[in-house]
Amino acid sequence: MEIKVKLFATLRENRGKEVSLELKEGATAEDALKKLEIPKKEVAILMINGRDDDPGKELKSGDLLSIFPPVGGG
């Protein structure tokens, strides 16, 4: 299945802003992080379709994953 991943701030370095990922059926957000070589400790906010979600949850084809390093304050 294919999912879309949006990356932000420092996570864009060498990876770009947006990537499409081909994952096996049943794959989770954690699997997507592994494939993108993003260590879990660099991830502060992970949204699935704009909602905070369990990184261990099974993804569906067409899901949008948004990944942020620790950032914020305004």
């Binding site: 949006k6 932000f8 701030a9 420092t10 502060a44 906010i45 949204m47 704009g50 909602r51 948004s66 942020f68 390093p69 620790p70 950032v71 914020g72 304050g73 305004g74």
Partner: peptide, 25 residues
């Protein structure tokens, strides 16, 4: 040591929130 005050705010300032808040709708 804090990700927000040690990395996020120094590197991008407060404006880095634009994408976070927008992605959350």
């Amino acid at each position: 040591d804090n990700g927000v005050t040690g990395q996020g705010l120094p590197t991008y300032g407060t404006a880095v929130l634009v994408n976070i808040i927008n992605e959350g709708g």
